[in-house]
Amino acid sequence: MNLYLNYFKTEESVEGDNEPIGIILSAEKDEVLVEYAMGGISNKIFVSKYQLYLPDKKQLQKKVKAIMEGK
């Protein structure tokens, strides 16, 4: 991914473009592994999980409520 981003930055981007970003979709995501793998890389690379089902709305709403109540 880092190679792709560097390539795009030099070869494809035109003036006024923002830096390219890379998104890696993965079925599982290990935060620690991601941290080690991305350390020291200045390009914007994001690792996101993907899921094949709708999220549990109630659960998410609870979490948002907690933010709003300052917990």
Binding site: S48, Q51, L52, Y53, L54, P55
Partner: peptide, 21 residues
Amino acid sequence: DPAEIVKDPYVLDFLKIPQSH
């Protein structure tokens, strides 16, 4: 900001792939 457009997780339920698959 680019960081704002990235979601975690991405929800791809519309692909209609069974979960265990």
